[in-house]
Amino acid sequence: MTETLVLRTNEGIDPQLHIWGWDVAGYLFLGGLVAGLLFFIGLHMRRSGARRALPTSVRWGAVAAPLLLGAGMFLLFLDLDLKLHVWRFYTAFRWTSPMSWGSWILLLVFPLMLVQVLLIAPESIRSLLVRAAPASWAASMAERGWNVVASLSILTGVALGIYTGILLGASVARPLWSSAALGPLFLASGISGAAALLALLERDHAARAWFTRADVWALGAELALIGAFFVGHATSTRCHIEAIQLFLGGAYTAPFWGLVVVVGVAAPLLLEWLELRGRVVVSAAVPVLVLVGGLALRYVIVAAGQAAGVGGDAPLNTFF
């Protein structure tokens, strides 16, 4: 006996053009997180000027960054239909394509991150690596260029963070994504995620408070940029105004305002602010909220952007 539902009830079963799903959202999230890590690593390298003065979390962050970005690129690789053609990104550079730019940024980011591992990774890991001769040579070279590495790290971090937002904006067919605010928004979200992750790893109270304060600023900036994102769309062309309706009563309203804004930004902002005022001792759960909110932001924007392209109020897939 075969069963099918009839009429209006099977609208959502029809395939949607969900070209990008969790994998791309996960890549954008991890990319943003690594961007934020690079930003803070650079900042702290400049602040402290010496290895020993660096907070432990930053030193572990330097180890985590290449692993996280590697995981993110693996997700992107999973999304490619023709996996064997991945090298073509490097043989066919196009000035106008953010995809092309991104693959080169990534290629430049990895050596920087490896140098940082050699420079500032916790001693247990560093001593293992530096033992090898070429690595020790590279490390001593890098030691001399400490400030260059630090500045490069900040710049690369900002570029990578903005790139994760622009990558989406490149597609003209998706009005929701063509916004100047998206790059800075993803950067702010990446920085807030990295601050949360470092606060999670940090044991020293003073350093933790520093990251919590940084997170409060980044989350505040994120809220402002979400505002800018809305204003930008609302004052733009008709098809932008229609696209933003997805968050103003349309199919992604609740996930956006509920999971991204309340769970991922507003609630942690409130709790961390209370912590800085000495009213609350923040637990591991709050940075986790920030990270979950960051992933939700990427997913909701990626999914909603594609729904806007296919024609407004498209039904959601089974993930949300």
């Binding site: 006996m1 539902l5 009839v6 209006r8 009830t9």
Partner: peptide, 28 residues
Amino acid sequence: LVEGSQEIAIIDIREGSKEASVPGSIFV
């Protein structure tokens, strides 16, 4: 069916041939 104005289920009770069934029928 064309207008989709109401949510209905079409239940086809035939047990043998399913010939000329209405699209979207459930067979019970």
